[in-house]
Design a protein around this nucleic acid. Structure first.
Lengths: 339, 339
DNA sequence: CTGTTAGCGCCTTCAA
DNA sequence: TTGAAGGCGCTAACAG
């Protein structure tokens, strides 16, 4: 069936120990016998059995990544970054969709523990630090922090919120609303606080100007409709993520409000989607891919016993101005550039 | 460290064989001793080590899914369907991004083989049937067929192409163009053939009306620009996938061509994106989630030695008419419904 | 420099 | 109905 180390040993007329030494290049082995072994490996097309190796070494060269839902446009890029980095390092990636359900998270962790999964990258705001401890596996937190003891890779959401709000002010908005994400998610709260930092000293601020969109396009659209009907004076919206910004865009379209001429909209995250719409969406962009590769790198460090440089890794966000906040309607940026 | 079957045996004062029997509920075991063992399992919170089990059984309760790129909006839903189904059945899912690169595909297959991965779901048009054979693992093909011997789960792309084109005809389009996907991808070719089936008897047909968009929004936008400038008579576009349809939408926007009043556009696939834009995009929708769960189910059947019902599983596509092909501008469907 | 051996944790004959 | 023992494929002492 599959050729084993024994077959190779036989073929090369040496012991399995010697074969093991050459394929792992550790320990002394004579140049000639090494060549013999290598020839045998080649000839039999031998590939070591990782399962047997795992059993012995108590490691599996696989890691897990738990995300709420891969269908959410933010996560594919995140997962891709992780997977790209890890395959390069010889690790394989198990994908887990938790739906933010603590029970599912635990189920996945159970399974992984049993499989000697070497470490886990978690995107979660529901998981309890105590349960992570129980499992005693290397863990890093991505996009959302879990506890100060677990290495964290996020952006400064509050500052991003300020950037977005200030940008709307800069382009001349007089009344700025905010569509807030789910209450239990820290980054949603932070973005909201960033908005408040900027807005609270404005005499026009009104608590009605903060609405809930649950990081969901449809909910955001409905809430925005209600908001704009009640408060037609609003001329700028900062949405807590891109998907909700698209919802706002739809609401504006429905009400025949011109974006950006009558209403400027800015999102948050910088997912690819933002470039696809017309008008294109301004956004506070996260370096998603980099964050994820750095998180993966840190996880490997942890797994291999190297010290982690920083427990908390905060990445910069970038304002990307596109049509949805351009008072002059410039045309399709990337399309134009490519002509 | 981790509690093993030995610990349980000791705790229950029985042999490991007995413990093995109860946890796998196979073989005779006295009711009382079974209870004793179960108590011990409970007390020690014993979870069998899957790696050891894999080594013995030569199976891993994990499967791999190879997709070109999880960032492509079509794949997250596909992967989600697979993962949902498999976790339910006690399998874990390894995600692989191939970038349509045969070498990467082989690398992943190598790794999986070494890990006793039980089976693989493949989305690929580059992979050679012969290499699949070499690996001797259960495989099913999803979204793109590979060979008649590997169970396939796809839609009837050609018929979908006809549906799209006929729809444009039905709503009164007089000159219909097609944005074609990559040449090597079979489903792109099929959709194109569906278009041709409908269009070839039209006396106005012109080969310029078929352009290449490479399943990419930007390329599609550029190609569409060129097309519309050269052929302003075009009043309908059938794009080979949704992303390219969005590209066409951008091109139209750039040229100040009103959609759908002056130009109707329809995409293909039915990804979530199509509901997010304004105008919303008509599309030929695939039952992505169902296809993927069915593919996963078939893979499990294959793995567990059950016969596969059908080698070729062709799912129906559905025309979803939205604003981009509505001559009367109805407003945001889902938004309206929810008011 | 190389071979022998004892596990890693589990499952399954084979005897008892 | 239960236990002892061998082995899945590999690695790491320990001898030689």
């Amino acid at each position: 069936m599959m050729t084993t180390i024994k077959d190779v040993a036989q073929e090369a007329s040496v012991s399995v120990a010697t074969v093991s030494r050459v394929i792992n290049s550790n320990g002394y082995v004579n140049e000639d016998t090494r060549k013999k072994v290598e020839a045998a490996v080649e000839k039999l097309n031998y590939k070591p059995n990782s399962v047997a190796r795992s059993l012995f070494k108590k490691e599996s060269k696989t890691i897990g990544i738990i995300v709420p839902d891969i269908k959410n446009p933010y996560f594919p890029e995140l997962v891709r970054g992780v997977e790209d980095y890890l395959i390069e390092k010889g690790f394989t990636t198990i994908l887990c969709n938790s739906d933010e359900d603590p029970e599912k998270e635990q189920l996945y962790l159970d399974v992984m523990k049993q499989k000697y999964v070497d470490g886990v990258i978690i995107v979660s705001n529901t998981i309890e630090p105590s349960v992570i401890n129980e499992y005693d596996m290397p863990v890093v937190a991505l996009d959302r922090s879990i506890h100060k003891d677990v290495p964290t890779f996020i952006i400064n959401n509050r500052e991003g919120g300020r950037k977005a709000t200030n940008h709307l002010l800069d382009i001349g908005c007089q009344r700025i609303a905010h569509i807030k994400g789910p209450e239990l998610i820290e980054n949603a709260e932070e973005r909201y606080l960033g908005y408040m930092d900027v807005i609270k000293q404005q005499d026009w601020f009104h608590e009605d100007y903060v609405i809930w969109g649950n990081y969901d396009q449809k909910e955001s659209a409905r809430a925005t409709m209600a908001l704009l009907e009640k408060h037609p004076e609003i001329d700028g919206i900062f949405a807590g993520n891109d998907v909700m910004a698209l919802g706002a865009l739809k609401a504006a379209d429905y009400l025949n409000i011109k974006v950006p001429q009558e209403l400027a909209i800015i999102g948050f995250d910088g997912v690819d989607l933002t470039e696809m719409t017309a008008p294109e969406l301004s956004t506070i962009s996260q370096p998603i891919y980099q964050m994820s590769t750095h998180a993966a790198e840190a996880l490997i460090d942890l797994i291999e016993g190297r010290p982690i440089k920083h427990q908390e890794n905060i990445f910069p966000s970038t304002l990307i101005q596109r049509q949805s906040t351009n008072s002059v309607k410039e045309n399709v940026t990337w399309l134009q550039k490519s002509l």
